[in-house]
């Protein structure tokens, strides 16, 4: 209903003209009218704010300390270079992205291959293994908090077996917090890879495999010479999208570990989010954001270059 209404509204102006001409000409105005709402929204709430970040990064700006606001030049960036937490969070971001994306790729590919086979109950199995895809970071945290808590989770059982101490939690121990957070992220992240790769798996012509079988190729060889080359672009793209996403992903760590213990699991965007939501240091936060954005851009371009994305086909 609403869709019909709005398309009418969006297209209201050119319509009379169309009526007269009967056969719609590829008039110059219609497409622009159609994309106007998208363009306006994106200019106002994406482009302008991005420009805002660059602007604020050069300002001293804290809404709780209005008397101290003003132009800072590159002061924020100078502070940043001397900020141990910045470097620490940058290092952890790299570890976090490498660990989560690496495991998600391997497990996601395995899962996609698995549910691409023909077997009884496949539709149900797909729905179930993909289901965490729709679960938010905060909800993931509230589920896994139950599993990790010393009173409600599995640690009491492990403690009974003498594997860990009673009353401990994987999240409070500096040695186990990283694997615990990665495991949690894998729980909801693997389905994304599996879904993307499954779509591409299904586009591989079946007769390629049959021809290879006739030639006596083993399953491993077929995987190596048919499946993997075919999936190459999808893997590169999914990995990049996911790496960007994991780098930017704040919800899970914010709620699960809060960046702790002792800032050990603070990624750069999490550090930014904390500066913004708790400390209200908008100027310094914007400088951090600018740095994060440039780093992300640099590595994305580098990655696409190195992986020769789309090279063989285009």
């Amino acid at each position: 209903m609403a869709i019909a209404e709005a398309t009418t509204a969006g297209r209201g102006t050119p319509q009379p003209r169309r009526r007269r001409r009967r056969r719609p000409a590829r008039g110059p105005r219609t497409p622009y009218l159609l994309i106007t709402p998208s363009v306006l929204l994106m200019l106002g709430f994406l482009v302008y704010p991005v420009a805002g970040v660059f602007y604020y990064s050069l300002q001293r700006y804290n809404i709780t300390k209005p008397w101290d606001n003003g132009f800072a030049g590159l002061g924020n960036f100078r502070d940043m270079l001397g900020d141990d937490l910045f470097w620490q969070s940058l290092g952890f971001s790299a570890e976090w992205v490498a660990a989560t994306v690496g495991f998600q790729l391997v497990l996601g590919l395995a899962l996609a291959l698995l549910v691409n086979e023909t077997f009884v109950g496949r539709a149900l199995a797909r729905a179930l293994v993909f289901s965490p895809w729709a679960i938010s970071g905060v909800l993931t945290t509230s589920i896994w908090i139950l599993l990790y808590s010393p009173t409600t989770g599995f640690t009491p059982y492990l403690a009974d077996l003498g594997l860990v101490e009673h009353g401990s939690s994987p999240l409070s121990d500096t040695g186990s917090v990283f694997p615990a957070a990665v495991l949690t992220e894998l729980w909801r992240g693997v389905p994304f890879f599996a879904i993307l790769l499954l779509a591409d798996l299904q586009s591989i012509p079946k007769d390629l495999y049959e021809a290879a079988s006739v030639d006596g190729a083993t399953r491993l060889r077929r995987f190596w010479h048919i499946t993997l080359p075919h999936l190459k672009d999808a893997i590169i793209l999914a990995t990049l999208l996911r790496a960007v996403w994991e780098f930017n992903n704040v919800d899970l760590l914010y709620t699960l570990t809060g960046g702790g213990p002792a800032h050990q699991t603070t990624t750069l965007p999490l550090y930014v989010a904390q500066k913004a939501t708790v400390a209200h240091e908008f100027g310094y936060g914007s400088a951090l954001t600018t740095a994060a954005f440039l780093i992300l851009l640099f590595f994305s371009i580098l990655y696409l270059r190195l992986s020769k994305f789309g090279g063989e086909r285009s």
Binding site: Y48, P49, G52, V53, P269, T277
Partner: peptide, 24 residues
């Protein structure tokens, strides 16, 4: 241009937009 701009937005982190969007 429109299409490319659209793809580029996929790289803009949500956390990055917190401060300027709040201001807006």
């Amino acid at each position: 241009l429109f299409l490319v701009a659209m793809l580029c937005t996929q790289f803009i982190p949500g956390a990055m937009m917190l401060i300027p969007l709040f201001e807006i």
